[in-house]
């Protein structure tokens, strides 16, 4: 069983990303959406956390672009996906855990 986790809040404000990383298994996937995409930025205290995660980290491109960033500002190892990619991640994993 693998889980797709979604995180939609900025890690600079809330602990959802940290908590999600603490609870994700190595074969899980984590998708950052909405304000959660700020957790994908490089050069922050969270870049190390995400890059050392065993779970794959994804970031919703549309939300990143809306907030003025693109792939050049994203930590190494974070993969960008569009809404189609989001749908595929839901289908590829066995369940979805939204860290609300």
């Amino acid at each position: 069983m693998s889980i797709l986790h979604t995180v939609n809040k900025s890690p600079f404000q809330k602990n959802d990303l940290r908590s999600c990383l603490n609870h994700a298994n190595s074969d899980d996937a984590i998708l950052l959406i909405e304000d959660g995409v700020y957790g994908a930025l490089s050069g922050t205290e969270f870049s190390l956390l995400t890059s050392s995660s065993d779970a794959d980290i994804y970031c919703l491109k549309a939300d990143l672009a809306a907030r003025g960033f693109d792939k050049n500002r994203v930590s190494d190892g974070v993969k960008l996906v569009d809404y189609d990619g989001f749908v595929d991640l839901v289908a590829q994993n066995d369940a979805v855990n939204s860290w609300l």
């Binding site: 603490n22 609870h23 369940a95 609300l100």
Partner: peptide, 18 residues
């Protein structure tokens, strides 16, 4: 423990959080 919680979460069909 957090480790046990991790295992529990990884073993569900439907996860509902509000």
């Amino acid at each position: 423990s957090r480790q046990e919680m991790k295992t529990l979460l990884g073993n569900q069909d439907v996860i509902l959080s509000f």
